[in-house]
Write a protein that binds this DNA or RNA. Structure first.
Lengths: 369, 369
DNA sequence: CTGTTAGCGCATTCAG
DNA sequence: CTGAATGCGCTAACAG
């Protein structure tokens, strides 16, 4: 009774269990590691009982320290606010579960400094590998990772000068798919809207593919509009440019009764006349949302009659609002990333691999005229 | 030269640094812990140099094992797919950053089994505390947490039989606010739509408050519709019931040219006639989205003319679609949760506290007639 | 089959 | 001011 006051119910250790079971720590350890065949049934049940009685739970920190591996991997996300990230995460979690890994999820919230800090933290916690959906930063930040350091696989974007496996959307194909779809549906004036390229390879690839397709089609006009979502003033300016283009275009049908910009009272009658030739191609969901919000504010609830919107990423509101989208195989991206990482952790040496998964075009009313 | 082949660039340990700096481990340890005043400037710079040269990074696992605290806390989320979770997370991260804590984010993905597994995992990693946005499960699962076990604070929902701090929306007030708003705007037939109550206290509280307000107002009719989002068939049935009510209601204006249910060709002319008396009050964003998707599919793009929608939670698409919402102080909820937990970790003994934060009504076109 | 002995990397007395 | 010694909880050789 005088052993331990109820003050701090210190957690039982392997030693406690050994004593309680009247045996040595080794046997307990063996039990914990499933080496059942090496334990007499009798001892085994005594151990079981002791563990139960003491409500013992092995300390992973200590285990990790000893054996040099802790089954932890880091998952560094640039922006959880982007549905893309959450979806990828689901795949990551599933794969981790299947492979006996535990993902430490770190959210950089679009801040380079945060990214650096978390990477450092993951390193000090000796994670066995990291999956990183990097911000657009110099390879420098990722120095401790990849090549010389701990195994890493990149998601969605590659990083200049950083050799590592990478898995993501087949951006070329996706951008082509989207552009062709718009072209095929009679849109010959297409605005590709994208966040600042910075070092984000996926943005660059998407835009390049877009331009390439456009330039290969006579009579089609293509524009690239950079939308710096982090900079309200810049957004304002870019959208103004877009507005001018849309206004100049003259509108969708032959008869537009009225478009007041007041969402609650606009009355628009679409008569099925000649299609609008302008379409917006958003490079990802955040951009698409920004565009949609602006268009709705400017042209009213019926903004979709005025301009078509196609987005890479298929956020939950896409269906609701009827915009066309290219859905990324997010779950699989996450899953594959973990598989790659796992191989790497297990020592596979192959040269850096790229895994490009195809996107799926989901046609909705917005781009059908 | 024969010490370590380039094979496995083993990470430098404190011992390596000590040797490199020509001193003992203790001094390194002191340096790491910022006990600068106890080190001669000379030794100090030697240590600095050695650390730099070896690119040394202290092993947090070992530190944690030794000092008994690892600055880790668990953040268990029921469903990251719900924007609410992501927003709360932002607050959690900010607070952790400020308090020198590292959150381990665990995503139960609505699976009770996952929740149990993660809780167990967090325990074995000896996190100093956990913040849990629990699934609707029995206290049993959370046994290791709270009272006797590791400090815990609940977010959004309390758990029967589990005494712990809890922080979340003032559900009573929020539901009243929403209901009153609808009533004030002429809606006298209100459907409160909510996921199965199970053990989720917030759902119960919101619904109870709704009913209470309704029953206090003569002439107002209130219904509660349970929408089990995990069960497509059940959703189907519930929505059918709703449809009957809406159809019976007769529609919004005096003249409805045509409502075909085909989103791409519906032509509706709203003439500003008498308001529809039916309004839907969604208990949270996932429910609101489900409703909106259904209504759009059934009544066409102009579904909002037919029925009003108000939601607790203000998802990104709310503004776009113009539905009224009650925004939760998500960031603050997360922030406060960490603060509470931190106090607990530091040994504060006060009895379980409840922190109810107010929601903010954001009126949009949907509920204005 | 089972127990003893050494550390894993680090923080902490406790003597210099 | 500084360093040697001790052990956190656990696993991994080695002996019984």
């Amino acid at each position: 009774m005088s052993t331990t006051p109820l003050a701090a119910p210190r957690r039982a250790t392997i030693t406690d269990v050994a004593r309680e079971a009247g045996t040595g720590k080794t046997s307990i350890s063996r039990y914990l590691n499933g080496e059942m065949s090496v334990l007499s049934p009798e001892l085994r049940s005594r151990i079981e009982a002791a563990i139960e009685r003491l409500n013992y739970q092995p300390n992973q920190m200590a285990r990790g320290l000893k054996r040099g591996r802790n089954r932890l991997i880091g998952m560094l996300l640039a922006d959880l606010t982007n549905p893309y990230s959450v979806e990828v995460l689901q795949g990551v979690e599933a794969a981790c579960h299947a492979l006996g890994l535990m993902p430490l999820i770190c959210h950089a919230a679009n801040e380079v400094e945060m990214e650096r800090r978390y990477l450092q933290l993951l390193t000090t916690y000796r994670v066995e590998g990291v999956i990183v959906n990097a911000l657009g930063v110099r390879e420098e930040t990722l120095r401790p990772v990849g090549g010389g350091g701990i195994p890493a696989v990149l998601v969605d974007r590659s990083v200049d000068g950083l050799v590592a496996d990478m898995v993501g959307l087949d951006n070329r194909a996706a951008a082509e798919l989207g552009t062709r779809h718009l072209l095929d549906n009679g849109f010959d004036d297409i605005w590709f809207v994208v966040q600042p390229f910075e070092q984000v390879s996926s943005r660059q690839l998407r835009e390049a593919a877009f331009r390439e397709v456009i330039s290969g089609v006579g009579g089609a006009r293509g524009h690239t509009l950079v939308l710096n979502l982090a900079e309200p003033a810049a957004v304002e300016r870019a959208l103004a440019e877009l507005d001018r283009a849309i206004d100049a275009d003259g509108g969708p049908g032959d008869a537009v009764a009225s478009v007041t910009g007041n969402a609650t009272s606009s009355v628009t009658v679409r008569t099925g006349g000649k299609a609008s030739r302008i379409a917006l191609f958003a490079a990802n969901a955040p951009v698409a949302l920004c565009l949609a919000l602006h268009l709705k504010a400017r042209y009213g609830a019926d903004w979709q009659a005025r301009v078509a919107l196609l987005s890479i990423d298929d956020p939950e509101w896409a269906e609701l609002t009827g915009i066309t989208a290219i859905r990324q195989p997010t779950y699989e991206i996450g899953y594959r990333a973990v598989e790659f990482l796992h191989e790497r952790i297990e020592g596979v040496q192959a040269t850096a691999r790229d895994c490009l998964l195809p996107g799926e075009l989901i046609v909705r009313a917005s781009t059908l005229r």
